[in-house]
Design a protein around this nucleic acid. Structure first.
Length: 415
RNA sequence: CGGGGUGUAGCGCAGCCUGGUUAGCGCACCUGCCUUGGGAGCAGGGGGUCGGCCGUUCAAAUCGGCUCACCCCGACCA
């Protein structure tokens, strides 16, 4: 920790109006470069990586294959679908040295469809799901709440290609399930809400919303069957019960595109009967940084962040009360290497600062488990384990720290 | 883009109304001492184009004009 670049702040910067933004800055996870443009510092980057990896794993399990598309797009492709004009000033445009139109990709339907029309020739190549985790650019009218709505942001986007509507719906279902698993694994409470599909187009779509009281999104839930509805409804059709309002943050959106892009871009394949048909597409996005922000909105207290285990920058933080005390230091190191060998991701606060300082900072950063090594308990050969997630503190014998953590971990990951 | 607000040291702020020594305070930073279970204490120190430009004036952080940046409320979104 003495080497970790995590500049923390005691006070909240004046521009931060929401907790997630404030805590991310205070915990030294992000820094702003310009309106809606941020640098991720090591702690923030670790969270981004954690979330990305969960997303990546689930996309792979659902049959997706990872690719990486360019952020810089030739304007022609966008003119082909008409979105060069439709998208408006949100699309960041520029010209290259030969005066050719380019833009920075806010989404990748045009690019993936171009790839598909060149490479997918036969129904034998279908179904196909390709995805990437990459930086998107949107010149938002009003960037807001730090990383929550930024002009440059990290997004996972997956595109599915099928031979017909029925198969496309199967792909859609797969992704729907995969999204549920992603947010489950992130330790977040979420809702899948049917939604309007907006500029991206298509028919059926669902928004994935992280439940957080500070969220901007209003969702209506049936208290009986727990089904979520978009705004405007009053009663659940099945249960005939009045709906209750909750709030949340949209972090994912899945769409059935159909032939919206394949038709104008002439992305055709030859079907079994020899006839030429447009590819039937779906697209599926998750805002990685937004998920990070939403996780904080949903999990924090007065002291700071309370990361869910699976997306925390570290799993365990060891806090030696006095780094100069030889016995404390030695024990801390011992525990550190033992737990490291057992596969935990940990950090040790080996700085020569007062205990109170370490405590406050640990609470702010929000690592789920703190192991406090102090003189008093060490006399009894035990350690204090503080669970940030629920505030619980327990005394654990040094020799049984391994098994104790196993239990704690199982508990935290399950809930 | 319309409406509102803020720019003074890395962060948080005072000073501005009523112009006038060397621009202050807290935190952070550096040195030393001290301290080590909840962001300690003492002593010393470094760091400033007062967002920028133009103007008024003997004199501008302070008054006027323009401008830029950032934040908040609205349409939009992952």
């Amino acid at each position: 920790m003495s080497e970790l670049f995590a500049p923390t702040l005691k006070e909240s910067p004046q521009e931060a109006e929401v907790v997630s933004h404030s805590y991310m800055i205070r915990a030294g996870m992000i820094r702003q470069l310009s309106s809606g443009i941020y640098t991720f510092l090591p702690l923030g980057m670790r969270v981004i990586e954690k979330i990305s990896n969960i997303v990546r794993e689930e996309m792979n399990l659902a049959g997706g294959q990872e690719i990486l598309m360019p952020a810089m797009h030739p304007g022609e492709l966008w003119k082909e679908t008409g979105r060069w004009d439709i998208y408006g000033p949100e699309l960041i445009r520029f010209k290259d040295r030969r005066e050719r139109d380019f833009c920075l990709g806010p989404t990748h339907e045009e690019i993936i469809t171009d790839l598909a029309r060149r490479e997918i020739k036969s129904y034998r190549q279908l179904p196909l799901m390709l995805f990437q985790i990459q930086t998107k650019f949107r010149d938002e009218i009003r960037p807001r709440f730090g990383i929550m709505r930024s002009r440059e942001f990290i997004m996972k986007d997956l595109y599915s290609f099928d031979r017909d509507e029925a198969d496309m719906e199967k792909s859609y279902q797969k992704m729907y399930q995969a999204y549920c698993k992603v947010f489950d694994r992130c330790g977040l409470e979420y809702l899948a809400v049917p939604a309007d599909s907006g500029v991206i187009g298509g028919k059926i779509s669902h928004e994935f919303i992280i439940v957080a009281p500070t969220g901007e999104e209003r969702i209506l839930i049936c208290p009986e069957c727990k089904t979520a509805f978009p705004e405007g409804r009053e009663e659940c059709e099945h249960c005939k019960t009045p709906l209750e309002e909750t709030r949340g943050i949209e972090v994912g959106h899945i769409f059935q595109l159909g032939v919206k892009y394949s038709e104008p871009m002439r992305a055709y394949f030859v079907d079994q009967d020899g006839s030429e048909k447009p590819l039937v597409m779906g697209c599926y996005g998750i805002g990685i940084g937004r998920t990070m922000a939403a996780a904080i909105e949903a999990n924090h207290d007065q002291q700071g962040i309370r990361w869910p285990w699976s997306i925390a920058p570290f799993e365990i933080e060891i806090i030696p009360i006095n780094s100069k005390e030889e016995k404390i230091r030695a024990t801390s190191k011992e525990i550190y290497s033992q737990l490291k060998d057992e596969g935990y991701e940990l950090i040790i606060d080996d700085r020569d600062v007062r205990a109170g300082f370490k405590f406050s900072e640990a609470d702010l950063i929000g690592v789920p488990v703190q192991i406090i090594v102090g003189e008093k308990l060490l006399k009894r050969n035990s350690l204090e384990v503080k669970i940030r997630t629920n505030g619980e503190r327990i005394e654990v014998e040094k020799t049984s720290i391994g098994s104790a953590l196993e239990k704690i971990k199982n508990n935290l990951v399950r809930t």
